[in-house]
Design a protein around this nucleic acid. Structure first.
Lengths: 152, 152
DNA sequence: ACTCTCTGTGGATGCCATCGACCTGAGCCT
DNA sequence: AGGCTCAGGTCGATGGCATCCACAGAGAGT
């Protein structure tokens, strides 16, 4: 991970569809060299994938909620994780310090679906209680912070 | 937004670097037709961009925190938003229902940097108080939920 | 029925991805 | 010092892809 790798990562976080030729121009290497570097970044796990950033409301996912979960004493955390993982509405799952062991970001189409999700969560073995906060609007999300030599 | 557009969105959320030719094969259209559809999805704002998904710890952002912000009574929400927007550590910002007006997801390299960020937030005009929860680990994040005709 | 529009196909062309051969400099052993 | 080795680069070739253009067919409105 030298400075050129960081530049490549930064460029691809800004636009994942840049061609290798364009990346090569930006970092001052040849296209095959960039191809090899990006391949190594992928296989070493630095770059996990490439995702289109889609406006959620335009695909029928207009409701965003953040849900904290308090575990039962004696609950098996791994089992709980598996129960959470199969719920597609849960887009993110953090294991937290604090009373609430998990913090979930969930996205659904309607409040009714959110209600169903919460009911299902409360029925899940190991869940003692949940606390749901609804996002009225998303100001921004997953903004990539520049990581390289910001000022050039 | 017909079924083919939804398939394209799903495919690109899974792998943003798929070629138009490959997308065309998947949805059963010609490459130029797919090119035009994707172009329209982009210019209509459905597809906002394409991002490489990078393991944050590998670029020196190993600490994730979620920060709730309680506004001063009489604070100007728009001004606050601008103050938050300039802080690059804040990757996501939701305007919430509830006592805490904002919920931020911040990513920094060290706990010391997190401390500095919290101090800065508490000094920001309009901020009455903050509440920070640290993520011990990220189980998954921004998992794209399938949207199209899931079972085919 | 005519025609307008929208969305598709097929063909042509130039750029890009990708492979293989070869080059170069750093580090290290003798 | 001299030379081995290897990581990581350049260059050139080739086949596939992006992208432009001309044109075709389905529906809607008149």
């Amino acid at each position: 991970m030298d400075a050129i790798d960081l530049s490549l990562v930064d460029l691809l976080r800004g636009n994942a569809r840049l061609s290798y030729a364009e990346l090569a121009r930006q970092v001052g290497l040849s296209a095959p060299a960039v191809h090899e570097r990006v391949g190594k970044l992928e296989s070493s796990g630095v770059v996990r994938g490439y995702r289109a950033d889609v406006a959620p409301e335009s695909i029928g996912l207009g409701v965003t909620a953040l849900i904290g979960i308090v575990e039962d004493s004696g609950a098996d955390t791994d089992d709980m994780l598996e129960s959470l993982r199969v719920l597609p509405e849960i887009e993110s799952c953090y294991f937290m310090a604090g009373v609430e062991s998990f913090l979930l970001k969930a996205r659904v189409g309607t409040i009714a679906e959110l209600e169903q999700l919460i009911v299902r969560l409360n029925r899940t073995p190991g869940v003692a209680s949940t606390r749901t906060a609804i996002a009225l609007s998303t100001k921004w999300e997953n903004r990539p912070q520049p990581v390289g030599p910001t000022a050039t």
